[in-house]
Design a protein around this nucleic acid. Sequence first.
DNA 1: AAATAAAACGAAAACGATATCGCAAATAAA
DNA 2: TTTATTTGCGATATCGTTTTCGTTTTATTT
Lengths: 340, 340
Amino acid sequence: MHKVNLKDLAHATNISISSVSKALRDSHEISSETKKKVIAKAQEMGYTPNPYAGFLRNQKSKTIAVIVPELTNNYFIQAISGAESIAQEFSYHVLIYTTNDDFEKEASILQHLSNGRVDGILISVSSNTNSLTQLNELIQAGIPVVFFDRICHEIETAKVTTNDFASGFIATEHLIKSGCKNIAYLSISDHLSIDQKRKQGYFEALNKYDIQHDESFIIKCGADEKTNASKIKKMLTGKKHVDGIFASVEKLALKTYKVCNELKINIPKDVKIISFSNLRTADLLNPSLTTITQPAYEIGKEAAKILFNHLAKRKSIIQNENIVINSVLTVRNSTSTNTK
Amino acid sequence: MHKVNLKDLAHATNISISSVSKALRDSHEISSETKKKVIAKAQEMGYTPNPYAGFLRNQKSKTIAVIVPELTNNYFIQAISGAESIAQEFSYHVLIYTTNDDFEKEASILQHLSNGRVDGILISVSSNTNSLTQLNELIQAGIPVVFFDRICHEIETAKVTTNDFASGFIATEHLIKSGCKNIAYLSISDHLSIDQKRKQGYFEALNKYDIQHDESFIIKCGADEKTNASKIKKMLTGKKHVDGIFASVEKLALKTYKVCNELKINIPKDVKIISFSNLRTADLLNPSLTTITQPAYEIGKEAAKILFNHLAKRKSIIQNENIVINSVLTVRNSTSTNTK
DNA sequence: AAATAAAACGAAAACGATATCGCAAATAAA
DNA sequence: TTTATTTGCGATATCGTTTTCGTTTTATTT
């Protein structure tokens, strides 16, 4: 079955290709009669424009890329979901790429995208990102980039985040007010701006309440699950008794839950836990988990909106801008003082 | 900054466009010296081929679409994740579309894709899908479609699923062996083949153990969360005491947990629950949830492999085929008989 | 009626890469 | 040396649109 194109349509209607094209695009240069004729014939023959020809002609594909470290993460999924909803509104298409938190893979994806396959990019960088040059080249080449969550401060463009510093402070303060004296911070990566800011908020809270800062309470976790588990285990069984844990990301909190189960450590009696998390089942956990929840869906929507509005304007450079959407604290049983 | 193309490269090297093109594609028609010269210059000038031109020429874009009802669902995410991993292997790009379980939206997406924007499609249809004609047209037009999970039996192509019938049987049998007599089935949609099969497995198990089948124990849930909650509540507070619940999908199990919390109904003492689920936190719930888990990641990988292998062969039609990857039962406390 | 303006359409040049030719030069075979 | 063959390269058509610019026809003005 041959796919019908403008040429076929022109032949069938005895009208030139260019006029047929114009008729279908509702140009004022074409009389309403011929428009009708062309449209009817197009309908009849089942004409649909070849997308690639349009892409080539316009150097635009109505497609954006969303690049995230991983998909099996509620935060990113919600953000993608938000971005996708806006994309549908703007009739854009969404390409998904995962980096597995590997900056080489990230660089290779960005490299691949530099040929202009997409009109714009939404990205949350990998923990150890090193792709500054790639990203800058992309922007120089006229492909707008918007960051969300895991941003690169060094690059001038729009960035959508949550209030990491304040949230870190609030989380830690909540633990303190719940009676914790020895509070550990589970870090996911030194290189990540979100981690740094959350940690700064943590320090700020400790300072405010005159709590001694102990370097051994900063647990540097990473990509490897096993290593994380053993570090958490070591912390919980160490001489210095930890009575509060602030997890910078959800998966570290969940790992802590499992370790506590193993070690028969009672949450919240022995140790209280709060975590950044977008888990839908936070209130069904045993015990239910006190969370700092980012409005991930909104963040994704906002980032996408900025990108599409920019693409609509066709201005070459996105202004440097920091959009902050606040997280919310939801207190649950993992930080409860009522130890029945 | 002007993007450099073959023409520029030809001009810079004093070689014809066609030869430059051939040189870059390592054609045997070009001498190794000129190849070197061209490649060096390409490097120097930062040449990257314009993707759209290639798409137009080849009528192929190395892009597939993955269409799912929703993203905020662990099953679909894992499946997409699996598909994406294979896509990276095959150097394919992945466009994501969500239908919000609305068949009109699904139809419109499929319609849009019929112009050949993608080389192939992976789809899990919406609950009330009606898009048979669209799907058939797509296949007729030479765009291969592979189903996963939520399939259309009527359409001749490859379908990747789990053993829904057997799993439904196993789940129900597990409840029966745990002492349940009055087992409810939470259905998500009558129209879905997965739901029908799981329910058939449920009936089969009831039959085998000579348990009276009670029509009021089939709870027809749907997209609306509130309605689902009230139906579940009604079931749990009805005269006929329900002592076992088999949820066809995760979200219905979670809803049941919340309703039980509200009503102070104890799981598993008052009622036992088993569910199809891909929740990572199943063992951290209160109580931990007994699950039938689909190998979603594998299913996504398998579906993608079939599609890519087919695309590589360029054969026009995918043979009708049913690939089944078995789910696994993981017994946890929500069906425990040890009611401490 | 002549001159001008507007309306409706068509020819052709892009967009950038690829592949089929044909043609020359260099090599091999006769 | 002549003929045949290989090797290396270039001109050109093609993929299917869109858009600029002419050209013709119709409508408007003097």
